[in-house]
Amino acid sequence: MNPSVLRNRIFFIMLVGKVLAILYIFSHWQTQGFSLNEAIGSISLVLPLFTVYTTAMFRSFASAQYDEPVQESRNIRKINAYAYQFICVAYALSLLLVISLKPSGTIGYAAMQSGLAAVESAFGAYLSVIMSSLFKHD
């Protein structure tokens, strides 16, 4: 797969995943699944890594701003491309799953915080490898 296509997909998946997570928390705050403090606390847990990744992605995007970008001669293997996309989708879904357990009372807020931290650390290592290999600073 062409690296720039994969980069765009990963960027899209991460962006949609995180925006959905934030909107999900917001909607639960509005229906009182979260108190205001809990909603702000949850967003502040989800947001930092998102900002770092999107900054790296945006830097890569900005470096390709010219009409004739540098052609990349080598494609990414299919298996790698699928694995990268799968990890990003699984990461976003895991965040949504952990968040969804709190409003129903299945887990408390403290357990949800630990759950989010666990998801971030479980996927963090893989995501950092994906980000550093795909979104190199030119």
Binding site: P103, S104, G105
Partner: peptide
């Protein structure tokens, strides 16, 4: 409590 979940 939440008004949007099925069971609370």
């Amino acid at each position: 409590g939440s008004g949007s979940v099925e069971k609370l």
